[in-house]
Simulated assay, not measured.
Amino acid sequence: MTDILLTNDDGIDGDGLAALREELLDIGDVTVVAPADNQSGVGRKRSRYTTRESHEWGYAIAGTPADCVAYGLRGLDREFDLVVSGCNHGPNMGSYVLGRSGTVGAAVEAAYLGTPAVAVSAYHNVEFFTHPAAEFDFSEPTRVAGELTRAALDADVFEAVDILNVNAPCDATDPRLRVTHPHDDFDVRVEHRSVEESEVEDLPVDVEADDELVALNDKFWPHVENWENPMTEADSVRDRYPVGSDRRAVVDGEVSVSPLTAPHEAAHHEKLDAIVEQLNLS
């Protein structure tokens, strides 16, 4: 029997988590340790202190997904074979987003604690995001995640891979799976404006009348900013992303499966070696 620790970043009441739990029960024993409320976009943020509340599936933690994994793997009197995070209400792909994602952050925390992990996210071929989650069907992404997880465990894939980051469409039947790598397309557009030019009540920061506002607009895709839906003009960027990248797989309506390792690898550069050697001699 495989012992699975299940978490997410949308909160323990998330529709995606409930659907994924049902799928994983066919693989093994599932214990849920998930955030008490939505923790999207917190990455690998950890808390020094937190609280827990009993739940019919396990525990709700007043903290981040990484808190949940740390507690689940080290605070419960049991050993887990695998951590699964998701099913997220929206995709998590691209090198930059993987560092910001709470869903993937939970998987990375697990990997650093010596337990392999699968991060599962759902996207929609037209709407892109699956919000509000109650209006979307997570059965296909969770089915794919279940089959992939079972096969990966049977084939000992996690002897060489720490994390499988999976992005699957929720509006396709039997979508093609593709092994991918995270694409690094990302930029930021900075906008300056005064308080008078802005709708102050909609700002998530406290402002004074003479403050100068700075807006940091993320460009995860070249044709939209922040969390706008990129699928409306997906054909215009298809050729920008090579086959085998996670972005191309999503644009093509496929299941993106990115095998990842957790520790950062150092890059060797002979000129840097020479600089350090020179500085040592000076």
Rank of each mutant, 00 (worst) to 15 (best):
T180D: 01
A151W: 10
F129M: 12
L153E: 04
E191L: 12
E197S: 14
V144F: 04
T180A: 02
L153T: 03
G146C: 13
H124S: 07
E208H: 09
N217M: 11
A160M: 04
Y112P: 05
D206A: 10
E196A: 15
L213R: 09
K219V: 04
P141G: 04
V205T: 07
D171H: 08
V166G: 01
A172T: 11
P222Y: 11
N229L: 01
F186T: 06
D239K: 00
E135K: 13
A215N: 11
A152N: 06
A119S: 13
A151K: 14
R189Y: 05
A117Y: 06
S236L: 15
T149D: 05
F136C: 02
D156A: 12
E159A: 11
L216G: 09
D202K: 15
W227C: 07
L203G: 08
D187E: 11
A117L: 12
T180I: 02
A155P: 00
N167H: 02
V200D: 02
D235G: 03
E159Y: 05
T232S: 15
I163A: 03
L213E: 08
R143G: 05
E212G: 10
E147C: 04
P141M: 06
L148Q: 11
A234G: 07
R178T: 14
D185V: 11
V126E: 15
R150F: 01
R150K: 10
A155D: 12
G244F: 03
P175S: 13
A155S: 13
L164T: 00
D156I: 05
S236F: 12
C170T: 10
V118F: 13
E140Q: 15
V120W: 06
A119C: 08
E127S: 13
F138E: 00
P230T: 02
H124G: 05
I163E: 03
S236Q: 14
D210E: 14
P182I: 03
H192Q: 08
T149S: 09
L113D: 11
A209W: 05
V237S: 03
V195M: 04
R240T: 07
P132D: 14
A111H: 01
L216E: 14
R178L: 14
F129S: 12
D211H: 04
L164E: 00
G146V: 13
A111R: 01
T232E: 15
T115V: 14
A215H: 14
